[in-house]
Design a protein around this nucleic acid. Structure first.
Lengths: 219, 219
DNA sequence: TAGATTGTTAATCGATTAACAATC
DNA sequence: TAGATTGTTAATCGATTAACAATC
């Protein structure tokens, strides 16, 4: 209802955070206005694409002027849901889970994400504190989620455990998964899964490195 | 020359690791053959897409039979460059760098990736060992890369340092970057960059969570 | 006002899906 | 051989780019 989503394509959505990052950088440089043309040169995309993308959400610009940096930054933030509080838990307090808990890039109030608990089965980890956040017993997770009305869970646990725990988490109210386990989660349509498949990302890198080596003398 | 790359689209390349993962799982279940139709049902893509994708690289199947799982697994591994040794270094031995050094998913010989050194400026980190891999002084990086003929570097360092260090690394022989810094690296065309922008991935997650909430009653 | 730049429609391009002849 | 399933061409669909009238 609020944003009368006329089914925005995933390709557009994936580009929004990058616009947001560039606008943040412009803001930090005290640049107050920018045209789609100049932004397109900085970002190495077409000005057409920028205007098309933004116009999915409303007319943020002004003819003859361009876009107000501060305003556009705020608007894209709202579109992405960064104005809401986004508390999350991390399930699996191993190296990756702890790294995410420590990660300053998003884990600060200015962007609005906040890790409020880690969970693990390992008694050696339960009770320790990572970046001021406590590792809890995974058996206490249901109650914690319900008490704190958590909607987002990062999954940084072994592949074989991820599907079952994800299913439980959905029944306890989790609406979005940030999934680092190398497995595809099959969950109801009302639930969102954002995969970060690190091993797969690394494989596309090696593909590109090797294919460039081979194609050196290409036309 | 070797693979006479007829310019495979990035969309196809990004799907290959997922095929590889599914074939590995089939192999582990001792399934020896699979048709594009059955694989398409498991992976929730069209059989057409699977056949089109694979045929960019050669006729791996057999009419009336389907694909041999073991063979296809090996072939896709070769396409991705997993048969070659892929030694890499991690630049930035903070939480994320250490987590990657520890990450078992790719950091084992069976897939062919191997982290052989971490680098940092922090004297407190230099000399420690993470998952059997030593953290070196970043001043020793040039010599190390040249001695070991390293081609791949993971960048897990602060955003403001990434562009300069990436430039240096290129001059020392690095061909591919696995970039975790929230910045776009501008480098020569001969160099490959695979970005893992965690904060941006998390933002698309919140977008989807919130837009589903709003659109609940949509047709 | 004249100049600049948006918002938006139309044209192009590329990727996905469907269909089917080839063939194991 | 008959049945199954690929490899590949053709049709469709969606996303990107170009163009330009609207308008600040």
């Amino acid at each position: 209802m609020s944003s009368m989503d006329k089914n925005i394509s995933p390709a557009v959505i994936k580009r929004l955070p990058r616009y947001y990052r560039y606008l943040g950088a412009l803001k930090a440089k005290n640049i107050t206005r920018i045209s789609s043309k100049e932004l397109s040169e900085r970002m190495k995309v077409t000005a057409s694409q920028i205007r098309q993308d933004l116009n999915n959400f409303g007319g943020f610009g002004q003819q003859g002027y361009g876009y107000n940096v501060e305003n556009l930054y705020v608007e894209i933030g709202k579109i992405l849901g960064l104005d809401k509080s986004n508390q999350m838990i991390i399930v699996g307090a191993g190296n990756l889970g702890q790294a995410l808990a420590n990660y300053q890039d998003f884990n600060n109030n200015s962007i609005g994400f906040q890790v409020i608990a880690l969970f693990d089965v390992n008694p050696k980890l339960i009770g320790i504190t990572v970046h001021g956040v406590e590792v809890h017993d995974i058996d206490d997770m249901e109650e914690f989620i319900k008490n704190h009305e958590i909607k987002i869970a990062a999954l940084t646990l072994p592949q074989d455990q991820a599907p079952k725990i994800a299913k439980d988490l959905v029944s306890w109210g989790i609406k979005g998964f940030w999934n680092f386990a190398p497995v595809d989660l099959t969950l109801p349509d009302s639930v969102t899964v954002e995969n970060v498949h690190l091993a797969e990302s690394l494989m596309t890198l090696t593909y590109n490195i090797h294919s460039r080596e081979d194609g050196e003398g290409a036309e």
